[in-house]
């Protein structure tokens, strides 16, 4: 029970002047209950990769296994496609653009209803999801279009959480949010992850990768170049340079300290607090 890519390639717009290889021989396994980051530059194939997980895109070659579901390039149809999409929920970039119902509550219940939940069950799930993302009850019956940008984002994400997926896939969920909103969003995903849901997240924010994720999948030119624990990843100077990845500020700062002779354990630094703790420890030893 995990997500598994077996030699997956994806040809974008085949037989047209725009044809190009968006995924090239991807092998990847993501274990249940993990929090995985997919990183790499725009156009490296990250979005294409995650859209294979709920079969929005189908491999041109190879096989994707998601739980018990199989998406095989050789098969014409995906078996139990609807079930798969409930099992692996995907939140698109700028998901607030998918809102359309008259009220917040109805919009969140839209997904569960499509997956054949009764009206009542769907509304229950919607309420639960909304309270999880921190939307107050007083907003439930408002039009989603009256909300602020950050609130819209939360409602849209609740729309997927309400499906109660086993795997939650997020495409740059914090893009365009203000810093505080982004922080709250990230701790929400952490909570969901701790309840047992596998979280797979595309992001450009390396601070978040370091702080929240247990693994980072690095993509470049349609290929995976590295799969690594974030703290190890940022030690690999050569790789960072090769993919011109900007390391988190706390890491570059810690590296400067180390270069100046301070004895820090880089793998222990995950966020601001652990950086301070490490500095304190190093100084007290001295």
């Amino acid at each position: 029970m995990s997500v598994k890519f077996e030699n997956v390639s994806f040809l974008y717009l085949p037989k047209t002047p725009f044809e190009h290889l968006a995924l090239d021989g991807i092998d990847l396994e993501i274990k249940d209950g993990t929090f995985t980051a997919i990183i790499g530059h725009t156009g490296s194939g990250k979005s294409t990769l995650v859209q294979h997980i709920n079969a929005l895109l189908r491999p041109s070659k190879g096989k994707v296994l998601v739980g018990d579901y199989v998406i095989d390039a050789a098969d014409k149809k995906v078996n139990k496609l609807q079930e798969l999409r409930k099992y692996a929920g995907l939140v698109f970039q700028f998901p607030e653009y998918q809102l359309f119902e008259e009220t917040v509550l109805k919009d969140v219940a839209f997904g569960p209803k499509n997956f054949k939940d009764s009206e009542q069950v769907a509304l229950e799930k919607a309420k639960k999801a909304l309270s999880l993302v921190g939307i107050e009850e007083s907003l439930f019956n408002k039009s989603p279009f009256e909300l602020s940008g950050g609130q819209k984002r939360r409602v849209a994400i609740a729309g997927i959480i309400a499906l109660e997926p086993q795997i939650l896939v997020l495409d740059e969920p914090t893009a365009g949010l203000d810093p505080q909103g982004a922080k709250e969003m990230m701790s929400l995903f952490k909570t969901i992850n701790e309840r047992g849901t596998t979280v797979i997240m595309i992001t450009h924010d390396m601070d978040n990768v370091l702080k929240y994720c247990d693994r980072a999948v690095v993509m470049k030119d349609a290929k995976i170049v590295k799969i690594e624990q974030p703290s190890e990843l940022f030690k690999d100077e050569e790789l960072l340079k090769e993919i011109s990845l900007e390391e988190p500020h706390i890491i570059s700062f810690a590296k400067k300290l180390i270069a100046n002779g301070m004895n820090l354990e880089l793998s222990e630094i995950k966020d601001f607090d652990s950086l301070i703790a490490q500095i304190e420890k190093a100084r007290s030893v001295k």
Partner: peptide, 16 residues
């Protein structure tokens, strides 16, 4: 592009 994106987003919410 936008049409395609919204269609995919709604498909993820179970729209066929």
């Amino acid at each position: 592009e936008e049409t395609e994106r919204i269609m995919k987003a709604q498909s993820s919410r179970g729209v066929d």
